[in-house]
Design a protein around this nucleic acid. Structure first.
Lengths: 227, 227
DNA sequence: GTCTATAATGAGATAGAC
DNA sequence: GTCTATCTCATTATAGAC
């Protein structure tokens, strides 16, 4: 909840992190890498360099710690996604938005944070990918996934306006495919590096984006001409 | 390893499963749903209706049980994927294969098994999706993911022959996007059901496939015209 | 091959001193 | 806010009776 707290005017380049931040950073990294059940509180506090008991003291039980990890960045992230969407819409003036611009606006804030947001954001995005690909059989994951539904729905609405001739359900299919590709790309498993023998680098999201925009835009156009 | 074993001529419709099969079935289902670390041996044996000690007796430690779950179906599945690929190539005669046929051949054996292969196959495919989206920070996942590299590479080669004007690395990007969508679709998280307010059903892979073929074929064509 | 019983370890959580 | 020590419980794994 309260993140910066007192923070008595120390400069931003000072590496002194509060205990809460150290725990959140470590939890974020390890949850992203091995999943919720693959990490213990002991591993988190050890990786953070703090005492075991402090995790429970500051954040309560493990599920609550997980929720705090998500809550720390969720609002800022979804807010920026909406900004990119508004910019893509505004760039088209009074006309319908450009499909290419919408595809780019959907991917770019995520890719940008992964590549240039620092390690914390990179881990957070990977954690998003991990949970987005997980069935919510355990309830505490549900609010996290549902948090991004409004963003997806706003993009879907914009796609519908950009393709008025396209049947609405086909727009949903197309957005579904786009979401899927993004979720998989963000996992950065490295499979594509092996399969392409180095021709494609899973961590070079700039190069990936330049292929995604024409690729998925063409897909949208192809579905627009179908009943 | 030895799956059918003695199997003294009892009919195929008999529901009597061996203890090993009961354990493998339960492990397959629970691993697919909650991941490797999210499931205990106790839950698996309880779900299978057998004694706790039998899991270790038949399969050794937990990681070995996981490997057996994968090994049971991996060869048959990758073999069928290759068959679909060969059929798509053969259908084109002496000419280059059709992009649409290749996209279909890439998706169809997976979707078919998920929808019509019975619950065991459905769980296995979901487990594949889960591990395909997981970084191999724990070594025992690596052989599982690498097992499907030859299949992906064979499809990629066919796509390259179908699009001789396309730069090879762009074919790899396109296959990467296609893989990603498939992995996400197979997870069946239900997010698309919420987001589309019921217009799209995540479990209806027949309807999904009919949109995927034109969508991704158009993407391939779009990338073919780029340097 | 199966089951009971138990060992050995690691887990999440907390009380209480500082 | 921090750390030591501990409680309680669940986990994997196995020994030994049947």
């Amino acid at each position: 909840m309260e993140m910066a707290e007192i923070d008595e005017g120390r400069p931003a380049d000072e590496p002194k992190l509060s205990t809460k931040e150290k725990i959140l950073d470590a939890a974020e990294e390890l949850f992203a890498e091995r999943g919720y059940y693959g990490v213990s509180i002991r591993q988190i506090t050890q990786h953070a360099g703090v005492d075991l008991a402090l995790a429970n003291y500051h954040f309560g039980p493990k599920e609550e710690l997980f929720r705090h990890v998500i809550a720390r960045r969720a609002e800022e992230h979804s807010h920026r996604q909406m900004e990119y969407l508004q910019n893509a819409i505004a760039a088209a003036g009074d006309g319908p938005p450009s499909i290419e611009a919408l595809v780019r606006a959907f991917c770019e804030p995520i890719f940008d944070r992964t590549m240039r947001g620092g390690p914390g954001w990179k881990h957070y995005i990977q954690l998003l990918s991990h949970t987005a690909n997980t069935k919510q059989s355990h309830g505490f994951l549900a609010p996290m996934n549902e948090r991004y539904d409004p963003v997806v729905e706003a993009f879907t609405d914009a796609f519908k306006r950009a393709l008025p001739a396209c049947a609405p359900h086909n727009v949903h299919y197309a957005v579904y495919f786009l979401q899927g590709a993004i979720v998989y790309l963000l996992a950065e498993t490295g499979a594509i590096n092996r399969q392409s023998h180095g021709l494609v680098d899973a961590s070079d999201f700039d190069a990936i984006l330049e292929r995604m925009v024409p690729f998925f835009a063409a897909g949208f156009y192809a579905l627009a001409g179908r009943p």
